[in-house]
Write a protein that binds this DNA or RNA. Structure first.
Lengths: 146, 146
DNA sequence: TAATAAAAGGACCCTGCTATCCTTTTATGA
DNA sequence: TCATAAAAGGATAGCAGGGTCCTTTTATTA
């Protein structure tokens, strides 16, 4: 399971990408509202993302968040790595410090399969691929108002 | 990823099972030492497990922890459920409250596969099946002293 | 050039999980 | 029956992640 801040980060970035495709640069207030996340906390997260250059931002009137020309493919892995490190791809499911192929815990083989397939997903999928799905109407970003 | 307390719980229960098979009932101090977990915290965890009747215990001199005749097959799922609930088997990987087949988040299909295969593992594997592997020398409970 | 709008940054609070300590209860066996 | 050994239980501390608030910096535009 991902940290809450990582989930917010991914949702925020998807929203920014969708808006960018419309030629817009959303601000914190709008992003937080649309992804249903606390405003001040979203600001902190967006700050972290821009500091690590996964995202670009413009200060001042008319400013906001956007992807620049060098940020056109952002894998989920990179986001997870920046937000919470990559421990979840390495750690033993049993909690052993030195669990590996030579010295396996009793869950090692099976857990590795799960962990690795999660790793594959987040390496392949990107903010852009997820945003595409939403744009095409194949998926949603927030719960539909019923 | 499982909570630390859940990991301790599983390791503790495996140790108890291995000792039970030798006709012994280990106490908190011994268990904590062998699974490399803090003593007082282990006591709390074992208390939780016995309160939920996943494990039995005997007070007083010569007492300790053991599985009784109705506790011969304990799935990892039950332990996870008692220690931290079953949220990790239901929650959306994207953090959406109402993400489901009809209203999927952009990660839904792929994440579901990972989550479900983890669920399958913890339903199938038990304290007894893990302990068997250790008894046979196919796996280890703690890091080997090198 | 001054008013305004926006992100950046620093300081701080709160909550839940992790962990400890101390007392109480219960059983054994010398 | 009393000393001792063990689990049970209550109270509390520590800490990281989640979250808020307020000030500063930067840019726009009227």
């Amino acid at each position: 399971m991902l940290a809450k801040s990582t989930e917010y980060a991914i949702r925020a970035l998807v929203y920014v990408q969708l808006k960018n495709w419309e030629g817009k640069r959303p601000g914190v207030v709008e992003i937080a509202r649309e992804i249903e996340a606390p405003e001040a906390f979203s600001a902190k997260i967006l700050q972290t993302l821009t500091r690590h250059q996964l995202l670009d931002s413009a200060k001042g009137r008319g400013g906001g968040f956007f992807f620049n020309d060098e940020q056109t493919q952002l894998s989920l892995y990179k986001i997870i790595h920046v937000m919470e490190g990559d421990g979840c791809f390495h750690r033993c499911g049993f909690g052993l410090k030195s669990c590996n192929n030579e010295n396996p815990c009793p869950l090692h083989e099976q857990y590795k399969v799960v962990r690795d397939s999660f790793y594959d997903i987040v390496r392949k999928e990107s903010i852009q691929s997820l945003s595409e799905k939403i744009k095409k109407g194949e998926a949603v970003l927030k719960r539909s108002i019923t």
